[in-house]
Amino acid sequence: MTISGLLSYLIFFLTFAGIYAIMALGLNMQRGFAGLFNIGIAGFWAVGAYTAAILTKSPSPNHLGGFNTPIIISLLAAGIFSAILAFLIGIPTLRLREDYLGISTIGIAEIIRLIFTNEAWLSYGVRGISSIPKPFRDIFGQYYNLSFLALVLIVIAIFYYLSEKGIKSPWGRVLRAIREDEEVAKASGKNVFRYRMEALVFGAFMMGVGGALYAHFTGFISPEAFMPMQTTFIVWIMLIIGGSANNFGVLIGAVITWGIWTGTETITSMLPAQYVTQAAAFRVILIGVFLEIILLNMPDGLFPERKFKA
């Protein structure tokens, strides 16, 4: 591999790792800081991706679209739609114990998949949406991938900044207090439901934006492309290995996990073609076992939660 080939692979790798890192930051807001159990990440991701695809594309006879919105609007809209979805799912579940949210997020991810699969007018069904615009391609030309990586990094920086700022504020302190002891927080007059909802919605917003970036970068999305459990699971591993409730750790966790995940692909891709299904399954088993080992042996991940002054 030449230097430039290596470099372009690195850019490609970091872009994907970065998009996943955005999802992981979103999950960290929900799970890390607020203790919320979201295992329907793929659903929020898909809503973001489809929103962006439908908004930015030029008219197509196959599905809804033709709005030609600029990317900045599509990113925001993707976040907002994902946030609305989170809001709706939060209403019946956030007053109850954490499991209900988990079960409901699986349900919502499944329903979203059903909608994008069955409603051809909206999303062209299983055939998916292709030729999603690549922003600034004309301006940056051969440096397009690099410019996209820059965009991803900017988004990460913004979310990282907002997360850190939020979590160090009085709002964040209450959030963590609720996570530690709901009853005590309630007794001191905090509206537990509202704080949780805000964390859930903010996290979902990030996930929606991450989904939009994914759609723009790959140029193609379909209900099958999301592999709901696999996608969700990888984001969870990023969070757990990096260290729940530590944004910096989560970013590192994202890069490490994505490295391991793509690394296993490199290995299994050497297998003969007839084993492709087995190889894919084997990769999931590997990261599954990996997760369990981390859970059992490294409860706090690589970077434990920092203690903030009360």
């Binding site: 499991d99 459990m229 087995q278 088993i285 599954g288 997760l291 369990e292």
Partner: peptide
């Protein structure tokens, strides 16, 4: 798994169950 994770918060135990689910399903797929 679950017995060893006893005492940790329930989300941790549940995510380990999700992991177990993926492992079993992919073993079957394989």
């Amino acid at each position: 798994l679950y017995k060893k994770l006893e005492g940790r918060d329930s989300v941790t135990i549940m995510i380990s169950a999700v992991g177990a689910a993926l492992i079993i399903r992919n073993l079957i797929l394989m």
